[in-house]
Design a protein around this nucleic acid. Structure first.
Lengths: 224, 224
DNA sequence: TAGATTGTTAATCGATTAACAATC
DNA sequence: TAGATTGTTAATCGATTAACAATC
């Protein structure tokens, strides 16, 4: 019974200048993708980006991008495009990003090390505050500047530091039992990088990574 | 100018017993997710799965799942559900999976090792036929049972083995130059695990992994 | 000014959902 | 039989797209 509190999505495109109505599922997903592109564009020093360029990178239709954005204000300049810094700030505000969430990472194998030492979460203001592993031989190893801790400490750390988000980079066999423990300790969003399917209570959101499914789907269109 | 041949999607739900019409973008994406779940369910020995269970794991509405499937035949048994093995086979046929694609993996760092040694692609009939790295110190290392090769060999291997799919697990700075080389050699689908944005010709599909964007989006709904 | 790109409308299409008869 | 779940219809809502005036 994997499920999600994201289930019954609400309210559509918001009237211009609208207040903090709950975003629809689709709009929120797209806005976060625009933000991802803007964040990268900032790094390469781009000052402006047009809706067409955003479309090229996100695969979202450019008209829809303009429509999504214009629901919250007139952020663009005709003939020029959108100011990268300003638009990134606007989207962060809309998404209420910057809430400085603490993340716990589980598994210090290859994948755990890759996630822990990449800046991928830090770039968006998330802190990986702890890395855990069940293997005593891995405890104490350095992953992304932190010593790996024993899995037995997880419950305490989650509770003490109000960890809502857990990233699972563990073997499939270990995932369900671990997920049960984490949910009991207070975790509400799980990023599952194991191949295992997870059963969690309805109030918990599971996000499963699926490269093989994505590839199957990409290939279908290539081969057709 | 990242773009995709998946852009202009075609044709909707197909009349029952329809032939090999091109699937719509959404249907193909969903079918590949159903297949992913079925493949996992097979491993745990499940014999049948109901549309509701598939819905729990994929977050796709159960009515839509039944609708997607019934477009291709009557695969389910009322009061029972879908036979896991049989449905997996049907979906593989619909998606024309099993075409035994060769995949090349770039980057033998933590992420490359994680991908190379996981069975995630092999499970779906994809062969990771080579692992490349630009660092001479990594050449020769064992990743998923293969010796890492120097990046200079990539062009030849791609051409000789008809590699259409490349997985990029390289640092952001290296990604664009590498992508250009790969596209020139014949690659048409790129899985980009670097944080860099890629510009590729229109005939190439880029799939960028985006955990931070996904998290932002999941958190928005949690916090609202 | 001329060219580019936004903001917005209107029309179409696909996704979502509830409901329920059919049937295993 | 009784309970469960499919296959299918109909109604609604959101996404997609083309088009274009406004304007930088």
């Amino acid at each position: 019974m994997t499920s999600s509190k994201i289930e019954d999505a609400p309210i559509g495109p918001v009237p211009a200048e609208a207040g903090p109505t709950q975003l629809s599922l689709g709009v929120a997903a797209r806005l976060s993708r625009y933000l991802q592109v803007l964040t990268q564009a900032q790094k390469t020093g781009r000052a402006t980006l047009s809706s067409q360029e955003l479309s090229d990178y996100t695969r979202v239709n450019s008209t829809q991008i303009r429509r999504d954005l214009s629901g919250f204000g007139k952020f663009g300049k005709r003939g020029v495009g959108y100011n990268v810094d300003a638009l990134a700030d606007e989207i962060r505000q809309i998404l209420q990003a910057g809430s400085q969430q603490n993340i716990a990472l589980f598994g210090a194998g290859h994948l755990g090390k890759a996630i822990g030492s990449s800046g991928i979460f830090a770039d968006h203001g998330f802190n990986v505050i702890a890395v855990f592993d069940a293997d005593p031989k891995k405890v104490g190893m350095n992953v992304g500047g932190q010593a790996v801790r024993p899995i037995e400490d997880a419950k305490r750390v989650i509770e003490e530091q109000d960890v809502l988000v857990a990233v699972l980079a563990v073997p499939g066999e270990a995932a369900q039992v671990l997920a049960d423990t984490l949910v009991a300790a207070g975790v509400r969003i799980i990023f599952n990088y194991s191949e295992s399917l997870l059963d969690v209570p309805a109030e918990v959101t599971v996000h499963t990574s699926n490269p093989a499914a994505d590839l199957l789907h990409a290939l279908y269109f290539y081969l057709s």
